[in-house]
Design a protein around this nucleic acid. Structure first.
Length: 291
DNA sequence: TATGTCACCTGTGGGC
DNA sequence: TGCCCACAGGTGACAT
């Protein structure tokens, strides 16, 4: 499942393979992939043709490619989205949703050129053409900075977090409070900080907030260095390569296995229609938790 | 306004 | 073998 490290790896790949290239044609093969582009797929195809990609940027789990006329191609990978740079003529992926061809050949090894493909099995992801705005597309103006962003304001985050009246993990997954943290890294960061997922945010100390942020930075930074978490085959970089970080996850997906810190079996509990993994000894349940 | 819940979607694996 | 169901989870609409 693409979270911040995975999206950043994809962004770097797009920066390397796509920036500076002019789009020759776009083909939308599944309308749901552009459902957030309200004028529809035909408009999406028509308006992108002839545009040149000038950069590759990211805010949290959103990616966007600023274009030469001030608009931007906005992308979210959702649960299973992939942005792949493939040689022209390579067999289509089963879940190919959008294809971009360029006026130049790119870095194709055999001179046949490369194209960009948006592939998405579960279709939770999507693309849209958006007004770029001053700093980021208006459509994602509500997305907060992520913990790895040099401009992330830790004091402001701490205040905002402790003003909430909710559970800690629920707050970490709120992208308007802090972005880039998904279910996997939330569990990993909470384990590192020794805090239970249902800990009431208003009871956190500043030291504990710092510990959670440090945990998030540690786990996401390590994943980034290794090319992103490869929880399953759905996450790949633009060249179709998987990361290998799943081998070092501490709690996520390890229900019943011993905690690597104390040996207590890791527990899995239902949470927000998904799962939370935690060590019941290292991360004791709060007396007054918020689920 | 703040917070919580649920639908969207498809492949996989377990149970029968 | 085939069918059914639970599960995976980011986002946004909707409910409270």
């Amino acid at each position: 499942m693409p979270e911040l490290p995975e999206v950043e790896v994809v962004r770097r790949g797009l920066e390397r393979e796509v920036v500076g290239r002019t789009i020759a044609s776009v083909s939308v093969t599944h309308p749901r992939a552009v459902r957030r582009h309200l004028p529809g797929g035909a408009d999406f195809e028509a308006r992108l043709a002839g545009r040149t990609v000038v950069a590759a940027r990211r805010r949290g789990k959103y990616l966007w490619l600023p274009l030469d006329d001030g608009d931007a191609l906005l992308a979210h990978l959702g649960m299973s989205g992939q942005l792949l740079v493939r040689p022209v003529g390579t067999a289509d992926e089963t879940h190919l949703r959008v294809r971009f061809r360029f006026t130049d050949s790119g870095n194709g090894a055999d001179g046949t050129g490369t194209e960009l493909r948006f592939v998405d099995q579960r279709t939770f992801g999507g693309l849209a053409l958006a007004d770029h705005g001053a700093d980021l597309p208006a459509a994602i103006a509500h997305i907060a900075r992520d913990p790895l962003d040099p401009a992330f304001d830790e004091d402001a985050f701490s205040l905002a977090l402790r003003r909430r009246r909710t559970g800690l993990k629920r707050a970490l997954l709120d992208q308007s409070l802090v972005s880039g943290v998904g279910n996997i890294y939330a569990d990993e960061a909470l384990w590192l900080a020794r805090l239970h997922y249902a800990r009431a945010t208003e009871t956190l100390t500043r030291t504990q907030v710092t510990a959670v942020l440090a945990g998030a930075r540690t786990v996401m930074g390590a994943a980034l260095e290794q090319g992103g978490t490869s929880f399953d085959a759905l996450y790949v970089d633009v060249n179709g390569q998987s990361g290998y970080f799943d081998r070092t996850l501490e709690v996520y997906g390890r229900a019943g296995e011993p905690c690597r810190r104390c040996g207590t079996p890791v527990r899995r509990e239902p949470f927000m229609n998904r799962s939370s993994y935690f060590c019941p000894r290292c991360q004791p349940r709060p007396r007054r938790g918020r689920w």
